[in-house]
Amino acid sequence: MMKDSMETKLDVDAMNVKFSARDVQVHYGDTHAIKDVSVDILDNTVTAFIGPSGCGKSTFLRTLNRMNDTIDICRVQGDIYLDGMDIYDPNIDPVQLRAKVGMVFQKPNPFPKSIYDNIAYGPRIHGLARNKAELDEIVEKSLRRGAIWDEVQDRLDAPGTGLSGGQQQRLCIARAIATEPEVLLMDEPCSALDPIATAQVEELIDELKANYSVVIVTHSMQQAARVSQKTAFFHLGNLVEYNDTNEIFTNPQDSRTESYITGRIG
C-alpha cells in the first residue's frame, strides 16, 4: 500500500527530480552502512534526513557529492543520478561534481583567511570571475544570500575564524553558495549553534529553497518539521520511510518511524 503511494508521488514530481538514487549500498570495510537505499530528491525543496545516531544518514548525504571518496575504506555501490547523469560514472570528475553539489558541515569550518577570501575561495579555484569587480560582486551577493552581509560588510578583511559560531556557519553557507551550486547538502548545520543562531540559519535554509535543492541531515525532529517539505527516516542503514514531512510526523506508515518520532527509539 505504502509502495503504491510512493510511486504515484514520484510520477507526479518526475519533472522536478534532482537526485535519484537506486539500490545504493555503502560499506566501510566490513560494516554495511547503507543498505539498498532508493530515493528521489526534488529540486526547490528542503529534504530532511532524520534517524538515530549511526543510522547512515550522514553517510548517505556524503555519497551525494562523493565526499566518501576521501575515505580509503569506503565503497559505494548502486546508482545515483544528478539530473539523469550517473555521478559514479568513471568519466565524472568528483571535483566538478562537488562544485555543483555544495556542502555545509556540522562544525563551522571557515578557512583561517579573511572573510572575503573565504567566500572568494570557490569562485577563484573554479575561475568564476573574470576580474576583481566581478569577484567583489560574487562575494557581496553570496554574503547577502547567506544573510550575513549586514554584519560583516565593513570588515571583509577580518579573519573568518574571528566571527561567532552562528556567523561562521552562515559564512560557510555563503561560501558554499558562492560557487553557484545546484544542490546544497547540510550535515547537521545547527548542531554546534545556539538557539538564536539556529533560528537564523533555519530562516536562511527556507529562503535558499527558492534557488536550490537543499538536503539537510538533522538530529532535531522539530527542525526537520520546521524547515523541510520532504523527510526521509533512516534506521540501521535502511531508508525506512520517505514522504512529505507532514505525513511523516502526523501519519507515519511504519511502526519504526512512529517509535522514533515519539521518542521511543533513538
Binding site: A99, F111, P112, Y121, I125
Partner: peptide, 26 residues
C-alpha cells in the same frame, strides 16, 4: 583539522588546490 580539508574538498577543490591554498598556509 580535518574539517578544513573537508571544507576545501566540499567546495570542489582538488587535493593539490586544497594543499596549496588551505593546508599549507594553515
Amino acid at each position: 583539522p580535518q574539517s578544513l580539508r573537508d571544507g576545501a574538498l566540499g567546495l570542489g577543490a582538488t587535493r593539490g588546490e586544497m594543499m596549496t591554498t588551505v593546508l599549507f598556509p594553515a
